[in-house]
Simulated assay, not measured.
Amino acid sequence: MRPPPLPSHLPPQDEDQVTALMSRRGIISKYAREQVTDQDIMRLRPNKWLNDEVINFYGALILGRSDACKENPATNGKSKVKKPLDVHFFSTFFWTKLEKEGYEKGRLAKWTKKIDIFSKDVILIPVNHGNIHWTGAAINFRQKRIESYDSMHDDRARVIKLLRQYVDLEHRNKKKAPFDFTGWEDYAPADIPQQDNGFDCGVFTCQFLESLSRGQESFNFCQKDILYLRRRMIWEIGNATLRTEP
């Protein structure tokens, strides 16, 4: 079932808070190991390309929500918001290491010294393509899929190929055996939201990954929602929490 459509604006008090956040200077917010400054938050103004700091902060919020849900599993069964999955979020630097250096040289085994990715539902990965385009990728253990979500519908076969290689090498390193890909598929759905410009890809990527972290199989946003989503992300980053309602 497709989620309900998004509103066009935040509640008035939250819109006021967003305006206030955009006028602050210095460090705007901290969460886990991430922080966002006034220069970073400006990337969420209209027509701006998101940087690593914003995407990694947002990813930390996604990961934190997932971890908190594991610690406090009781949820309201009548809630319209799907319970978050057990996810791990790799920072934007993971893909750079994987693509440019590979598993061994990039020392990617050390990235998971305290994490068993094979026990997770989904691994979420923001992907930077040549510093000109962001896409989302996922290793979906629940659905047995290597996934790519691109708001410009480019061919992302290389993303899927490298992530398959990563899964196998990680399994060999941690489990001392090749990974069994029986029943797995490569998944790059065509019917996903598309951008109509060259600068909103980071927002699309963050929203793809956030939706995936809740097990969504479809997305309730499109290009017309991006201005609202930019404002919502400012509020979420400023408050270091993801909204439970639009």
Rank of each mutant, 00 (worst) to 15 (best):
Q165K: 14
G26L: 10
L98C: 03
L212F: 05
R107I: 10
L6K: 12
P73M: 04
W111F: 11
L63A: 11
T75Q: 08
N173V: 05
H9W: 08
L63P: 00
W49C: 07
Y228A: 01
Y166P: 00
N47P: 05
S66V: 08
N76Y: 13
A60W: 01
T75P: 11
L21F: 13
L44V: 03
L98S: 04
W49V: 04
D52E: 08
D196W: 15
L124P: 00
F179N: 05
F118L: 06
E101Q: 15
R2F: 08
K97W: 01
P126W: 04
E170M: 09
D186S: 07
E71S: 14
D180Y: 00
I41Y: 11
P4S: 11
D200V: 04
K161L: 09
H9N: 12
Q17C: 07
V203D: 09
G183F: 02
V87W: 01
P73A: 06
K100C: 11
P193F: 14
I62T: 05
K161Y: 05
A138Q: 01
D67L: 14
P5T: 00
A32T: 08
E147V: 03
K144I: 00
A177W: 09
K78Q: 14
Y31E: 07
H9S: 14
S211M: 15
I226V: 15
N220C: 11
D200I: 06
C201D: 08
I234S: 03
K80H: 13
M233R: 04
L242V: 02
R230E: 07
D121Y: 02
F89M: 00
D180P: 03
I28M: 04
L98Q: 02
K114Q: 10
S66A: 11
I146R: 00
S23I: 07
I123V: 14
L44F: 01
P189N: 08
A157D: 11
F179K: 04
F181A: 01
R2K: 15
E34K: 11
K144E: 00
Q194C: 14
K224G: 09
F179R: 04
D196T: 15
N76S: 11
P5V: 01
E99K: 03
K83F: 12
L85S: 01
A109Y: 13
L212V: 06
P11K: 03
F93T: 15
V87C: 03
C206M: 14
P46Y: 04
L85C: 01
P3Y: 12
S79W: 08
A137Y: 00
D200W: 09
Q194K: 15
R158S: 06
F221E: 09
A60M: 03
R232Y: 07
K78I: 14
N197F: 03
G183M: 05
F204P: 07
M152T: 12
P246C: 14
E101Y: 15
H153M: 06
A188D: 09
F118P: 00
K30H: 06
K224W: 12
S23C: 13
N173K: 14
Q17I: 09
Q143N: 15
N220I: 13
D38W: 11
E217V: 12
L229G: 13
A68M: 13
L162A: 02
T205A: 08
A177Y: 08
S119V: 02
T182F: 04
K224V: 13
